[in-house]
């Protein structure tokens, strides 16, 4: 499978990366080079093989339902949460107006 410029434009839009014509043109052969190369995976007979889920034998641990149990993952730290925001106003994050 190979991609053309229109497909790259579509992917770039899906990934929210603005790309000009020139950049799109440049990406086409680069992506096709990589895609052609990964294509060889199709040779591998994977019938009956499960996709990898846990790389190392391990079980998903669940935590107890306790509010603010660990300080690093607790709420109640609005200043920290907003500290790096490009536009923080009245305790909110500001974004360009959205029309739903």
């Amino acid at each position: 499978m190979s991609v053309d410029k229109a497909t790259v434009a579509k992917i770039a839009s899906l990934a929210r990366i603005k790309m000009g014509d020139e950049e799109l043109e440049r990406m086409v052969p680069e992506l096709n080079g990589i895609l052609d190369w990964v294509e060889q995976l199709g040779e591998v007979d994977c019938s009956g093989v499960e996709p990898m889920t846990a790389v190392i034998e391990n079980h998903l641990r669940l935590r107890d339902d306790v509010v603010d149990a660990i300080p690093e993952t607790a709420g109640g730290r609005r200043e920290d949460v907003l500290a790096n925001a490009p536009a923080a106003e009245h305790g909110f994050f500001g974004v360009p107006k959205v029309i739903e």
């Binding site: 499978m1 497909t7 990406m27 990964v38 591998v44 996709p51 790389v55």
Partner: peptide, 27 residues
Amino acid sequence: RRILIGTYVLSAGFYDAYYNQAQKVRT
């Protein structure tokens, strides 16, 4: 480049051929 590759291989219609196959090979 990698975001585009990653977006492409997960996109509708390609997931099984790329991502799932790769995770099987990983197994």
